[in-house]
Amino acid sequence: MNGVAHAWLIVALMMSGLYIVMASAHLFKKLIGLSVFQVSVFMLYISLGVVEGAAPPIVEPGVDAYSNPLPHVLILTAIVVGIATMALALALLVRIRRAYGTLDEAALAAKDEDA
């Protein structure tokens, strides 16, 4: 039986990612959590396009059932957006670390209060 169990697992993974983003005090780890959050959203999308017993959406003679190509296209774009965000965030972290000497949220806030 195919059901929605995959969706439960994906949601659980998604929420782990979100939890890491919100709960971590370390900026770098937040970023890692963000990527987990995004990956699980990608899987949710792709799971929407699966057709039982179908082939990947590359037209071939003799095949008449294909998976839905649209989610694939969207997620290709989303993956690119994800890596772009990550690169930018890492550059920001490099600057923050150099300016403050720490990436811990509480420590950062404390440093600006003295200033």
Binding site: F42, I46, G49, S67, H72, L76
Partner: peptide
Amino acid sequence: MDAVDVAFTEAAV
């Protein structure tokens, strides 16, 4: 899930 292009990209990126 038959998303070969996505798999390729995710692995690379």
